[in-house]
């Protein structure tokens, strides 16, 4: 049953997953090329100075990508469940509902993690060849809130898609948009979100609960 459910989620998300993975790796490649051309033009020491003194992380093209990927994956995975109220089929499967929703969310989250980790590894491996470990770590810490924002966006979109009423969907969407605004308050400043990481992780757990709530409401008959 477990593998069948994974199979179902994979069928829904595989296209978005592969497209997102390719785009992420292309963006990572673009970041590397930008840094490379900077080094060719000005020398590696100017790149160091830019990163140390001016907070040039060179990873700005990555910024909104995890957000877009999270939303796209959430829609790809959850929208088919709600179109024609197909969720009824899923909820009719002889599998505990709480485990069912957990598995659905875990599948999406793991796919996002794979995409984000691979992209981060590609950038970090290149950075490590030209920068000291501390700078590589700072670049990763700069990207971390963006990746976490991607997971938040995925969970928000999931809760919105699984919600049965348009009214509450709008409320959840507004809530999600505001939370996303918090994730991008200080663009361009490296490692500014270090103290916020734990808050975002707690937020991720809270947002995951929303999908369970949406399902519970659906089962009560709160559907348009």
């Amino acid at each position: 049953m477990y593998s069948a459910l994974l199979f179902k989620e994979w069928l829904k998300t595989r296209r978005v997953f592969f497209v997102a993975l390719i785009v992420s790796l292309l963006v990572a490649g673009y970041v590397i090329l930008t840094m490379n051309s900077h080094i060719s033009a000005n020398g590696v020491n100017i790149l160091w100075l830019g990163m140390i003194l001016k907070d040039c992380s060179f990873v700005d093209p990555v910024k909104y990508l995890p957000l877009a990927i999270g939303m796209a994956l959430g829609i790809a995975q959850m929208a088919p469940e709600m179109s024609h109220k197909r969720l009824k089929l899923t909820l009719h499967l002889p599998y505990p509902h709480s485990r069912l929703v957990s598995l659905m969310l875990a599948t999406g989250t793991i796919q996002l993690l794979v995409i984000f980790v691979l992209q981060a590894i590609v950038i970090a491996v290149y950075d490590a060849t030209i920068l000291p470990g501390e700078m590589v770590w700072r670049v990763l810490l700069t990207m971390l809130p963006w990746y976490l924002a991607g997971i938040c966006a995925y969970l928000c979109v999931s809760a919105v898609c699984l919600e049965g009423t348009w009214y509450t969907r709008v409320i959840l969407s507004l809530l999600g948009i505001t939370l996303m605004m918090v994730m991008f308050l200080k663009p361009g400043v490296m490692a500014a979100y270090n103290s916020m990481i734990i808050v975002i992780i707690i937020l991720i757990l809270i947002l995951a609960v929303l999908s369970f709530g949406s399902i519970a409401r659906f089962k009560e008959g709160l559907q348009d």
Binding site: I171, L172, L175, T178, L179, V182, I206, V209, L210, F212, G213, S214, A216, R217, E220
Partner: peptide
């Protein structure tokens, strides 16, 4: 679950509004 969900969304919205307003 539904009550918990309602409380959670309300408190989350409260936190968000204390920033937004």
């Amino acid at each position: 679950m539904k009550r918990f969900y309602y409380i959670l969304v309300t408190l989350l919205a409260t936190a968000v509004l204390s920033w937004v307003l």
